[in-house]
């Protein structure tokens, strides 16, 4: 009630006070997350570390990731090359450091683009309902009924190996997943009292969606985004592994593993390190997603 009171009595300070309340709430949420979700915190720190490694790659990597050293083909890990070298004498550690850039870039671009498009589609579908909703939903169902990696393979192979094509393929896969969540939330919110109230004072569709729809569905979108990030990184690696993702000589982790499969017995370090980097990063995003779900939706955690 105090909010209503402030709004009517002090119209000039309204915006300022609202902002402060939101900021304080956000700070409190962060503190509570740090206190209650230790695993989530460790995951965030690890992801930050990987982001830092990606940004500072030229300073961290001891060698150029595509530089071929003719003196050291398939060298086992040693003092100079801590993770050994590959069949062209390239330093595996430096390639893994640079490879983090590709995984994070593809993951980040895919998740951001598919969230934006997914929100637009889901909002339209959920707000208007009826025939619009039905048509959109059947199209989303059709895309989702094709196994994700099969669809990615189909699109990426059609478009040819390039990083932007991988992103396009993965965005098409992720859009329906976000759209479905947004649609569900929108339909739920549409029926609530505050939207009813808002409509009765003459708010239009756009205002209702932006003011009430979006803020109220951020929680499930954030959880989904974290899990989608992990899935996307695995999908990029899988496509690159098949030779239709990131083109050589880029140091994509999936591409490194594909190359390694030819030297499994003579150079097992080529198999171990890129896969380990990949698994740890995906693990961090999955654990973060779990922690966020526990934190944002206590009903779901047992």
């Amino acid at each position: 009630m105090s909010q209503v009171h402030l709004d009517s009595e002090l119209p000039v300070k309204k915006v300022h006070i609202r902002k402060n309340i939101r900021l304080t709430k956000f700070k409190d949420d962060c503190k509570r997350f740090i206190r209650t979700q230790k695993i989530g915190l460790v995951s965030i720190l690890f992801i930050f570390l990987v982001v830092l490694v990606a940004i500072l790659a030229p300073m961290i990597a001891p060698f150029d990731p595509v530089d071929q050293n003719r003196e050291a083909f398939l060298a086992a890990p040693n003092a100079q090359h801590v993770m050994g070298t590959d069949d062209l004498g390239r330093d595996v550690f430096s390639r893994i450091v640079y490879g983090s850039r590709i995984s994070l870039l593809v993951g980040f671009a895919t998740v951001i683009i598919s969230i934006i498009i997914g929100i637009l589609i889901g909002m339209v579908s959920g707000y208007f309902g009826g025939i619009v909703d039905m048509v959109i939903q059947r199209i989303m169902d059709a895309i989702m009924a094709i196994p994700a990696l099969i669809l990615a393979l189909f699109i990426a192979a059609l478009l040819g190996p390039a990083i932007q094509n991988v992103i396009i393929a993965l965005v098409i896969i992720e859009i329906p997943r976000f759209a479905r969540i947004v649609r569900g939330e929108m339909m739920r919110i549409r029926e609530t009292n505050f939207v009813e109230a808002s409509r009765s004072v003459g708010a239009n569709a756009l205002r209702i969606i932006m003011r009430h729809g979006l803020p109220n569905m951020m929680a499930p979108i954030i959880v989904m985004a974290s899990l989608a990030f992990g899935q996307t990184i695995i999908a990029e690696a899988s496509l690159s592994f098949l030779g239709i993702g990131t083109p050589p000589p880029n140091p994509s982790w999936g591409l490194m593993l594909s190359n390694a499969s030819r030297y499994m017995e003579s150079a097992p370090w080529l198999v171990i390190f890129p896969g380990l980097a990949l698994s740890l990063l995906v693990l961090a995003f999955n654990l973060l997603g779990d922690a966020l779900r526990d934190f944002l939706d206590p009903k779901l955690s047992s």
């Binding site: 899988s238 017995e265 198999v271 698994s279 999955n286």
Partner: peptide, 22 residues
């Protein structure tokens, strides 16, 4: 089990092949 969800299955395949071969 979260670990199991995070390991790409093609990497698992390569590891199994390598270990069995070596």
């Amino acid at each position: 089990s979260v670990g199991g969800l995070s390991i790409p299955n093609f990497w698992l395949g390569l590891i199994l092949l390598t270990v069995l071969a070596l």
